[in-house]
Computed example of a mutant assay.
Amino acid sequence: MRRVRQFVGRLRKRMRGDDGMNTAEYAVGTLAAVAFAAVLYKVVTSGAVFGALTSIIQKALA
C-alpha cells in the first residue's frame, strides 16, 4: 500500500507542474483537429450519408 501511495504522490507532483500545452503540442493538436474535421466532412458529404441526413430532416419537418 505504501508503494501505491508513493507512486500516486509522484504522479500528482508531475501533474501539478504541467502548465499546459507548449507550441509543439498545440501544432499537433491543431493538425489532428483539422484532419478529423476533413474526414468528418468527407463522410457527411458522401452520397449515402447526405441522403440519409436529408431524409431525416425532411421527415422532421413534415
Rank of each mutant, 00 (worst) to 15 (best):
1 M>R: 00
1 M>D: 02
2 R>A: 11
2 R>H: 03
3 R>Y: 01
3 R>F: 02
4 V>R: 02
4 V>N: 00
5 R>Q: 06
5 R>N: 03
6 Q>T: 00
7 F>T: 03
7 F>L: 05
7 F>Q: 05
8 V>S: 03
8 V>H: 01
10 R>I: 05
11 L>R: 04
11 L>S: 03
11 L>H: 01
12 R>T: 07
13 K>P: 00
14 R>Q: 11
17 G>F: 02
17 G>H: 05
17 G>Y: 02
19 D>C: 10
22 N>T: 12
22 N>F: 07
22 N>M: 08
23 T>E: 15
23 T>G: 08
23 T>V: 11
25 E>F: 08
26 Y>R: 14
26 Y>H: 15
26 Y>M: 14
27 A>F: 13
28 V>I: 15
29 G>L: 11
30 T>H: 11
30 T>D: 12
30 T>I: 13
31 L>G: 15
31 L>D: 15
31 L>E: 15
32 A>C: 09
33 A>M: 14
34 V>E: 08
35 A>G: 08
36 F>E: 04
37 A>M: 12
38 A>P: 00
38 A>C: 09
38 A>N: 01
40 L>E: 12
41 Y>G: 05
41 Y>W: 13
43 V>G: 04
44 V>T: 09
44 V>E: 04
45 T>C: 05
45 T>K: 08
47 G>D: 14
50 F>Q: 10
50 F>Y: 09
50 F>G: 13
51 G>D: 12
51 G>P: 01
52 A>S: 10
53 L>R: 06
53 L>W: 10
53 L>E: 08
53 L>Y: 10
55 S>W: 13
55 S>K: 14
56 I>T: 05
56 I>D: 07
58 Q>D: 10
58 Q>T: 11
61 L>A: 13
61 L>Q: 10
61 L>C: 07
62 A>P: 07
62 A>E: 13
62 A>V: 08
